[in-house]
Design a protein around this nucleic acid. Sequence first.
RNA 1: GGUCUCGUGGCCGAGCGGCUAGGCACCGGUCUGCAAAACCGUCUACAGCGGUUCGAAUCCGCUCGAGACCUCCA
Length: 488
Amino acid sequence: MSIHQGKLQIYNSLSGQKEKFEPIHQGRVGMYVCGPTLYSEPHMGNMRTFINFDMIYRYLLLLDYKVKYVRNITDAGHITNSLGEAVDSIGSAARLEQVQSLEIVYKYNVKFQELQRIYNMLAPSIEPTATGHIQEQIELIEQILENGFAYVVNGSVYFDVKKYSEKYEYGILSGRRVDELAEETRTLNAQDEKRFFADFALWKKANPEDMQIWRSPWGDGNPGWHIECTAMSTKYLGSHFDIHGGGMDLKFPHHEDEIAQSCGSLGCNPAKYWMHANMLNVNGQKMSKSFGNYFLPKEIVEGTTELFDKPYSPNVLRFCMMQAHYRSTLDLSQDSLDAAEKGYTRLSDAMMLLDKLNTSAESSFDVKSIVDSFYNAMDDDFNAPMLIANLFEAVRRINLVNDGKETLSATDRDLMKKEMKAFVLDVLGLQVGVANSDSKLAPVMDLVLELRQQARTNKDWTTSDKIRDGLAAAGITVKDSKEGTNWS
RNA sequence: GGUCUCGUGGCCGAGCGGCUAGGCACCGGUCUGCAAAACCGUCUACAGCGGUUCGAAUCCGCUCGAGACCUCCA
């Protein structure tokens, strides 16, 4: 067991406070995160949640936990919402593009996998699909029926919230109360088959136009919205596991209903710690398709979104996101990205500088306490912004050592190197010192800069400035320093 | 309408009873043929009004403002 285990505090949405993290099985962590519904390309807001849980996964790994990380892929359209209206997102997309449902799912899954690679996300241990677990979902529904917490109406099965709340507390996660639910709604909807307003579909009878239909004991139909997560988390992590995560907007009703399904079938809340990542905002509002304030993760890297006038590297996006706590909203703007770009470069430069720093017999500052501050920040509910602030303290020291104003012993330098790499590369998932030169341009640039250097040596400023300005016009920036000339 | 969260310096954002993060911008300096870059330093804010306290950005109340969920949503 790592010496760093045992100090981690996690904010548990279930209790509304930070709790000491004690895994159910010592040294091992089971984590389930609700993944994307693949009826379109995930936008940057979707990605923020996954990037945040990627960071969380990475820190758990650094603490030397053996983590089983399960993130589902929803490839079955949620045939019904809790109002009983048909909203088959995948089917609609398929009809629109005039292809089969599976083509839609496959197409967007390929894109999603590519995005994970571009944004340097670690692959989960398993990425199970909803359609691959229809049988498990049916079995769970049967169990819930057997326990008396669901009823069958006309080929559909609904979860009986009132019956359930006689034995369990419906609303335990979201703070809602069953007797208040009805009056919460803005508009009263036809309840059709449901006995109670808050009941939700576990299985929905097929419509003739449905593109995906499965057989069940209740006739042909589709699984309800929430049952897939219960089925897959149970199958791969057991009926009670450590962490269940997802976006804040899934808290109600999705996660609330997952709890109800687990209690209703297996008798217990599926997760010990519930974690919710906050939304990505643009112009002060949650990024979403309907607001039109969204962009695709690829557009921003290519600079093709209307919202920003230049491209940003995935590292800059990640850095920007890591500068905000996962439980806070983050407002993206041109300014915040520009600031993140410079900050990321500064951190990245110092990391590379660390490799060639001169060492002394003694260090003039306490490296150990800086390193401790990295762990302390992350142990406090994955406070990545605090971690970054502490990393910049290290950056400042590195630069001062480089300027000869501070000293660093070889031992401390190695410690700093090891831990900074662990936190910047492994935990934050940033990449440092990625070569930006393409193979053909590099030797040409070497030659051009050599000629300019000759001119400078001869104090031929006209020629040297002409080269610099010419390169600038071609989009290449030349930077002179003591060590030589760089370009980018 | 119900439930909840949040309002921090020019911007993005931590902190959540005393030690007043960090990044970017600004300003000052070092370096430099000039420029850019880089580096160092500086910059004392917590929506408003009351209250609790020896002490509040941090706790309580009210007011104003913003957002989320209650419908698919990361």
